[in-house]
Protein backbone atom coordinates (compact mmCIF):
# COMPACT_ATOMS: atom_id res chain seq x y z
CA UNK A 1 0.00 0.00 0.00
CA UNK A 2 2.75 2.45 0.96
CA UNK A 3 4.58 1.39 -2.20
CA UNK A 4 1.55 2.26 -4.36
CA UNK A 5 1.41 5.61 -2.56
CA UNK A 6 5.06 6.23 -3.30
CA UNK A 7 4.64 5.35 -6.98
CA UNK A 8 1.64 7.68 -7.10
CA UNK A 9 3.60 10.51 -5.53
CA UNK A 10 6.45 9.86 -7.95
CA UNK A 11 4.17 9.96 -11.00
CA UNK A 12 2.51 13.12 -9.70
CA UNK A 13 5.94 14.75 -9.44
CA UNK A 14 6.23 14.07 -13.19
CA UNK A 15 4.19 17.23 -13.86
CA UNK A 16 7.18 19.31 -12.80
CA UNK A 17 9.39 17.38 -15.23
CA UNK A 18 6.84 17.86 -17.99
CA UNK A 19 6.72 21.60 -17.31
CA UNK A 20 10.52 21.84 -17.47
CA UNK A 21 10.61 19.87 -20.75
CA UNK A 22 7.92 22.13 -22.23
CA UNK A 23 10.06 25.17 -21.41
CA UNK A 24 13.07 23.54 -23.05
CA UNK A 25 11.08 22.75 -26.21
CA UNK A 26 9.71 26.31 -26.28
CA UNK A 27 13.24 27.74 -26.15
CA UNK A 28 14.32 25.26 -28.83
CA UNK A 29 11.39 26.31 -31.04
CA UNK A 30 12.31 29.96 -30.55
CA UNK A 31 15.89 29.20 -31.60
CA UNK A 32 14.59 27.35 -34.65
CA UNK A 33 12.42 30.29 -35.68
CA UNK A 34 15.28 32.74 -35.21
CA UNK A 35 18.00 30.80 -37.07
CA UNK A 36 16.14 28.61 -39.55
CA UNK A 37 16.00 24.85 -40.06
CA UNK A 38 19.55 24.48 -41.37
CA UNK A 39 21.10 25.60 -38.07
CA UNK A 40 18.45 24.23 -35.72
CA UNK A 41 15.73 21.83 -36.81
CA UNK A 42 12.39 22.42 -35.10
CA UNK A 43 11.55 20.14 -32.15
CA UNK A 44 8.58 18.68 -34.01
CA UNK A 45 10.68 17.75 -37.06
CA UNK A 46 13.28 16.20 -34.73
CA UNK A 47 10.62 14.12 -33.03
CA UNK A 48 9.41 13.01 -36.47
CA UNK A 49 12.99 12.03 -37.28
CA UNK A 50 13.16 10.00 -34.06
CA UNK A 51 9.89 8.31 -35.05
CA UNK A 52 11.34 7.48 -38.46
CA UNK A 53 14.42 5.98 -36.81
CA UNK A 54 12.19 4.03 -34.44
CA UNK A 55 10.77 1.96 -37.30
CA UNK A 56 14.25 1.26 -38.72
CA UNK A 57 15.75 -1.99 -37.29
CA UNK A 58 19.29 -0.78 -38.09
CA UNK A 59 18.76 2.24 -35.82
CA UNK A 60 17.71 -0.06 -32.97
CA UNK A 61 20.96 -2.00 -33.40
CA UNK A 62 22.95 1.23 -33.21
CA UNK A 63 21.16 2.36 -30.06
CA UNK A 64 21.45 -1.10 -28.50
CA UNK A 65 25.21 -1.12 -29.11
CA UNK A 66 25.68 2.20 -27.28
CA UNK A 67 23.29 1.13 -24.53
CA UNK A 68 25.19 -2.12 -24.06
CA UNK A 69 28.55 -0.32 -23.88
CA UNK A 70 27.32 2.38 -21.51
CA UNK A 71 25.59 -0.07 -19.15
CA UNK A 72 28.44 -2.60 -19.05
CA UNK A 73 30.89 0.29 -18.56
CA UNK A 74 28.70 1.62 -15.75
CA UNK A 75 28.49 -1.80 -14.06
CA UNK A 76 32.26 -2.13 -14.36
CA UNK A 77 32.88 1.28 -12.81
CA UNK A 78 30.28 0.68 -10.10
CA UNK A 79 31.88 -2.64 -9.14
CA UNK A 80 35.45 -1.36 -9.17
CA UNK A 81 34.63 1.99 -7.57
CA UNK A 82 32.59 0.52 -4.71
CA UNK A 83 35.16 -2.19 -3.95
CA UNK A 84 38.11 0.21 -3.93
CA UNK A 85 36.20 3.01 -2.22
CA UNK A 86 34.95 0.81 0.62
CA UNK A 87 38.42 -0.66 1.13
CA UNK A 88 39.96 2.81 1.24
CA UNK A 89 37.20 4.03 3.56
CA UNK A 90 38.19 1.45 6.14
CA UNK A 91 41.90 2.21 5.78
CA UNK A 92 42.70 5.87 6.46
CA UNK A 93 46.30 5.40 5.31
CA UNK A 94 45.17 4.01 1.94
CA UNK A 95 42.66 6.82 1.55
CA UNK A 96 45.33 9.43 2.20
CA UNK A 97 47.56 7.72 -0.34
CA UNK A 98 44.85 7.42 -2.99
CA UNK A 99 43.21 10.87 -2.71
CA UNK A 100 46.01 12.69 -4.64
CA UNK A 101 45.82 9.97 -7.30
CA UNK A 102 42.09 10.60 -7.62
CA UNK A 103 42.79 14.30 -8.11
CA UNK A 104 45.30 13.43 -10.85
CA UNK A 105 42.82 11.05 -12.47
CA UNK A 106 40.12 13.73 -12.41
CA UNK A 107 42.49 16.25 -13.96
CA UNK A 108 43.18 14.10 -17.04
CA UNK A 109 40.60 15.01 -19.71
CA UNK A 110 38.51 12.05 -20.97
CA UNK A 111 39.65 12.86 -24.51
CA UNK A 112 43.21 11.92 -23.55
CA UNK A 113 42.00 8.54 -22.34
CA UNK A 114 40.13 8.04 -25.60
CA UNK A 115 43.35 8.52 -27.55
CA UNK A 116 45.22 6.09 -25.31
CA UNK A 117 42.41 3.51 -25.35
CA UNK A 118 42.20 3.75 -29.16
CA UNK A 119 45.91 2.95 -29.40
CA UNK A 120 45.56 0.05 -26.94
CA UNK A 121 42.27 -1.51 -28.04
CA UNK A 122 41.32 -0.01 -31.45
CA UNK A 123 37.67 0.79 -32.20
CA UNK A 124 36.12 -1.87 -29.98
CA UNK A 125 33.86 -2.20 -26.94
CA UNK A 126 36.96 -2.34 -24.73
CA UNK A 127 37.95 1.19 -25.79
CA UNK A 128 34.58 2.62 -24.79
CA UNK A 129 34.44 0.67 -21.51
CA UNK A 130 37.98 1.67 -20.56
CA UNK A 131 37.23 5.34 -21.09
CA UNK A 132 34.01 5.06 -19.05
CA UNK A 133 35.91 3.28 -16.29
CA UNK A 134 38.63 5.90 -15.88
CA UNK A 135 36.29 8.87 -16.33
CA UNK A 136 33.67 7.83 -13.78
CA UNK A 137 35.84 5.90 -11.33
CA UNK A 138 36.89 8.88 -9.15
CA UNK A 139 33.28 9.87 -8.45
CA UNK A 140 32.16 6.39 -7.43
CA UNK A 141 35.34 5.78 -5.46
CA UNK A 142 35.00 8.99 -3.44
CA UNK A 143 31.27 8.40 -2.94
CA UNK A 144 31.88 4.96 -1.47
CA UNK A 145 34.91 6.01 0.60
CA UNK A 146 33.14 9.05 2.04
CA UNK A 147 30.15 6.90 2.92
CA UNK A 148 32.38 4.63 4.98
CA UNK A 149 34.41 7.38 6.63
CA UNK A 150 31.34 9.38 7.66
CA UNK A 151 29.47 6.36 9.02
CA UNK A 152 27.93 6.44 12.48
CA UNK A 153 30.42 4.49 14.57
CA UNK A 154 27.94 4.15 17.43
CA UNK A 155 25.89 1.80 15.25
CA UNK A 156 29.02 -0.32 14.80
CA UNK A 157 29.45 -0.51 18.55
CA UNK A 158 25.79 -1.32 19.02
CA UNK A 159 26.01 -4.21 16.58
CA UNK A 160 29.21 -5.40 18.23
CA UNK A 161 27.61 -5.21 21.69
CA UNK A 162 24.83 -7.47 20.45
CA UNK A 163 27.30 -9.98 19.07
CA UNK A 164 27.76 -9.11 15.38
CA UNK A 165 31.13 -10.13 13.95
CA UNK A 166 33.19 -7.85 11.66
CA UNK A 167 31.79 -9.27 8.40
CA UNK A 168 28.20 -9.07 9.62
CA UNK A 169 28.77 -5.50 10.83
CA UNK A 170 30.20 -4.51 7.48
CA UNK A 171 27.34 -6.06 5.50
CA UNK A 172 24.47 -4.83 7.66
CA UNK A 173 25.76 -1.56 9.12
CA UNK A 174 28.78 -0.25 7.20
CA UNK A 175 27.67 -0.91 3.63
CA UNK A 176 24.15 0.33 4.32
CA UNK A 177 25.45 3.69 5.43
CA UNK A 178 27.47 4.32 2.27
CA UNK A 179 24.26 4.67 0.24
CA UNK A 180 23.80 8.31 1.33
CA UNK A 181 26.90 9.40 -0.58
CA UNK A 182 27.12 6.48 -3.00
CA UNK A 183 23.80 6.93 -4.81
CA UNK A 184 24.36 10.51 -5.95
CA UNK A 185 27.80 9.38 -7.16
CA UNK A 186 26.29 6.43 -9.04
CA UNK A 187 23.67 8.63 -10.70
CA UNK A 188 26.46 10.98 -11.78
CA UNK A 189 28.55 8.04 -13.01
CA UNK A 190 25.64 6.73 -15.08
CA UNK A 191 25.30 10.10 -16.81
CA UNK A 192 29.06 10.16 -17.40
CA UNK A 193 28.89 6.62 -18.83
CA UNK A 194 26.44 7.62 -21.54
CA UNK A 195 28.18 10.89 -22.40
CA UNK A 196 31.58 9.27 -22.54
CA UNK A 197 30.27 6.27 -24.50
CA UNK A 198 28.87 8.49 -27.24
CA UNK A 199 31.99 10.66 -27.27
CA UNK A 200 34.35 7.69 -27.41
CA UNK A 201 32.33 6.09 -30.21
CA UNK A 202 32.42 9.28 -32.21
CA UNK A 203 36.15 9.81 -31.82
CA UNK A 204 37.19 6.17 -32.05
CA UNK A 205 34.88 5.55 -35.00
CA UNK A 206 33.45 2.59 -33.11
CA UNK A 207 29.85 2.64 -34.39
CA UNK A 208 26.90 3.11 -32.07
CA UNK A 209 25.17 6.46 -31.54
CA UNK A 210 28.55 8.22 -31.65
CA UNK A 211 29.20 6.70 -35.05
CA UNK A 212 25.73 7.73 -36.26
CA UNK A 213 26.41 11.28 -35.03
CA UNK A 214 29.68 11.32 -36.97
CA UNK A 215 27.81 10.29 -40.14
CA UNK A 216 25.18 13.00 -39.55
CA UNK A 217 27.99 15.55 -39.19
CA UNK A 218 29.57 14.46 -42.48
CA UNK A 219 26.20 14.84 -44.21
CA UNK A 220 25.48 18.13 -42.37
CA UNK A 221 22.15 16.57 -41.35
CA UNK A 222 21.31 18.58 -38.23
CA UNK A 223 17.89 16.94 -37.91
CA UNK A 224 19.39 13.46 -37.75
CA UNK A 225 22.10 14.58 -35.32
CA UNK A 226 19.53 16.13 -32.97
CA UNK A 227 17.38 12.98 -33.26
CA UNK A 228 20.31 10.85 -32.09
CA UNK A 229 21.01 13.25 -29.23
CA UNK A 230 17.36 12.93 -28.21
CA UNK A 231 17.65 9.14 -28.36
CA UNK A 232 20.82 9.13 -26.24
CA UNK A 233 19.15 11.29 -23.59
CA UNK A 234 16.04 9.09 -23.67
CA UNK A 235 18.18 5.97 -23.16
CA UNK A 236 19.89 7.56 -20.16
CA UNK A 237 16.55 8.50 -18.63
CA UNK A 238 15.13 5.00 -19.19
CA UNK A 239 18.17 3.35 -17.56
CA UNK A 240 18.24 5.86 -14.70
CA UNK A 241 14.59 5.22 -13.86
CA UNK A 242 14.74 1.44 -14.26
CA UNK A 243 18.14 0.78 -12.68
CA UNK A 244 19.11 3.50 -10.20
CA UNK A 245 15.91 5.19 -9.03
CA UNK A 246 13.93 2.09 -7.94
CA UNK A 247 16.81 0.88 -5.78
CA UNK A 248 17.29 4.37 -4.36
CA UNK A 249 13.56 4.73 -3.60
CA UNK A 250 13.55 1.39 -1.78
CA UNK A 251 16.66 2.24 0.23
CA UNK A 252 15.63 5.83 1.02
CA UNK A 253 12.14 4.94 2.28
CA UNK A 254 12.96 6.07 5.80
CA UNK A 255 13.98 9.53 4.62
CA UNK A 256 10.48 10.17 3.32
CA UNK A 257 8.79 8.59 6.32
CA UNK A 258 8.63 11.88 8.20
CA UNK A 259 7.30 13.78 5.18
CA UNK A 260 3.65 12.86 4.62
CA UNK A 261 1.62 13.37 1.45
CA UNK A 262 0.79 16.89 0.44
CA UNK A 263 3.50 18.55 2.51
CA UNK A 264 5.41 21.06 0.42
CA UNK A 265 9.15 20.56 0.43
Amino acid sequence: MTRIGRIGAFLWSGWAGLAALSLLFAAWQAGHEAYGPFILTSPLDTVWMVARLAVDPAAWDIAALTLQRAVTGFLLVAGAGITLGVAAGYSPAALRLVTPLVTVLMGVPPIAWIVLAMIWFGGSDATVRTVILVSALPEVFMGAARGITTRDRLLDRMAEAFGAGPVRRFLTIGLRQTTTTLFPALALALGTSFKVAVMAELLANAGGIGGALADARINLDIGLALAWVLIAVALLIVVEYTLVQPVKAEIDRWRHAAQPWGVKR
Partner: peptide
Protein backbone atom coordinates in the same frame (compact mmCIF):
# COMPACT_ATOMS: atom_id res chain seq x y z
CA UNK B 1 23.77 3.48 25.09
CA UNK B 2 23.47 7.17 25.87
CA UNK B 3 22.14 7.71 22.35
CA UNK B 4 19.44 5.26 21.27
CA UNK B 5 21.80 3.97 18.51
CA UNK B 6 18.90 2.93 16.27
CA UNK B 7 19.49 2.23 12.60
CA UNK B 8 17.67 5.13 10.90
CA UNK B 9 16.81 3.08 7.81
CA UNK B 10 14.95 0.47 9.79
CA UNK B 11 11.59 0.70 11.58
CA UNK B 12 11.34 0.25 15.34
CA UNK B 13 10.43 -3.40 14.89
CA UNK B 14 13.20 -3.77 12.31
CA UNK B 15 15.72 -2.48 14.85
CA UNK B 16 14.57 -5.00 17.45
CA UNK B 17 14.46 -7.70 14.80
CA UNK B 18 18.11 -7.00 13.93
CA UNK B 19 19.45 -8.04 17.34
CA UNK B 20 17.11 -11.05 17.43
CA UNK B 21 18.56 -12.17 14.11
CA UNK B 22 22.04 -11.72 15.60
CA UNK B 23 20.92 -13.90 18.49
Amino acid sequence: FQEPALMPWSTASGNIDYVLRLA
